[in-house]
Design a protein around this nucleic acid. Structure first.
Length: 173
DNA sequence: GCCAACGTTGGC
DNA sequence: GCCAACGTTGGC
């Protein structure tokens, strides 16, 4: 059965506009075991996800993507020049995984976090819970559909991927 | 810039 | 194995 996901990224680092331009990309630099295990064990090709802009103005849901290849070795762990380099990892048994994602659609505007919080159907969504810091979280089909419906209804008025003043730049992905 | 929440690290 | 210290995330 297909699953649904919410993938967070700071748009300063990589945005839905970048994915629209690129068509597909490797969702790399994840350095959290729980998220790695999601990609290894639970993601399947064809799963759909919400692309969420974090630490942005506004933060919120920006579009839809598709998981094309889950559980690939993350090349940044082998790159000594990368800030995500992990000298303890080997090519035979890579510690860190990524997934390849493809662009599906871009909402006309970002559905702001505040709007998501106001939605009864999303009351149990992990991303809205205090202290949640996982960059990829599972969604129920109902949650995915509710966000997609909000995205279809949003106008372009809230469009924008400006960095917030506190943005750390090339950090979370 | 602040701070709550949580993961990771390392001394013991 | 415990747990304090530290680092990171991300909304505000």
């Amino acid at each position: 059965m297909a699953r649904f996901w919410l993938l967070k990224c700071e748009p300063v680092v990589y945005s839905i506009a970048d994915l629209e331009r690129d068509g597909r990309t490797g969702w790399d630099s994840v350095r959290n075991y729980q998220v790695r295990n999601f990609m290894r064990d639970d993601m399947k090709p064809g799963d759909l996800g919400i692309f969420y802009h974090s630490n942005a103005d506004p933060s919120g849901a920006a579009g839809v993507l598709k998981i094309t290849k889950p559980g690939l070795p993350d090349p940044t762990q082998f790159d000594p020049k990368s800030e995500y380099h992990d000298p303890k990892s080997s090519r035979e048994t890579p510690t860190w995984l990524m997934c390849e994602v493809a662009f599906v659609e871009r909402f006309e505007g970002v559905v702001p976090l505040e709007r998501l919080r106001g939605e009864t159907a999303l009351a149990d969504m992990q991303i809205l819970k205090r202290g949640n810091r996982l960059s990829i979280t599972p969604l129920t089909e109902a949650e995915f559909k509710a966000i997609r419906a909000l995205g279809a209804a949003v106008s372009g008025a809230s469009e924008g991927i400006r960095a917030k003043s506190g943005a750390r730049g090339k950090a979370s992905r």
